[in-house]
Design a protein around this nucleic acid. Sequence first.
DNA 1: CGACCGATCGTCT
DNA 2: GACGATCGGTCGA
Length: 202
Amino acid sequence: MKKLNKAFYQRNDVVRVAYELLGKLIITKWSGELTAGRIVETEAYRGVTDRASHAFGDRRTARTEIMYAPGGVAYVYLCYGIHHLFNVVTGYQDEPHAVLLRAIEPVEGITVMCNRTGKMQDDFSLGAGPGNLSRSLGINTSHSGLSLLGASIFIADDGYESTGNNILATPRIGVDYAGEDALLPYRFIIRDNLWVSKKNAF
DNA sequence: CGACCGATCGTCT
DNA sequence: GACGATCGGTCGA
């Protein structure tokens, strides 16, 4: 098992990074509690020119500032006052690209995930959807800015193969406000995976 | 099934 | 003061 390094995150093509993140393991260790899931759904948010991105138009605010950091850190923000959405910041300094993780297939620490989410069991909704993903992994906005190269939260390659025909590209979810950019095929899912967020799963 | 609705609060105007 | 990169529930066809 190989932890993804700086070179993986610090690249220009965020769409490619989103594609390559499929099949990797996202792992969190908060005070000894280990949880891990296989990434089965991602979305790319492509810098200052993408109307769907928080960094569109080069808006630097206190919230989005972390997106401008060199790739390999977390960007977590609160959505609808309830959900903590987890993004992987990619690209180089001052290029605010990010990949939203939208679904995991739970792999490790499923009991812990159930405790965090209040679910009785993994019923395929445990890690499906960006809000559920963050809750099951114990991620919240206080983790925004954390390095993904450290020990408490990181992404790893365990040799799982998820390329070619097994991957589908679709438009992103919930970005109707982005006009034409809402049609871009920047959402990637592992075909037929049961944990992919159900609405518009294809 | 699909449409709609309430929860809930930080962020930006 | 308005509005979400959501979720889970309800209601009606």
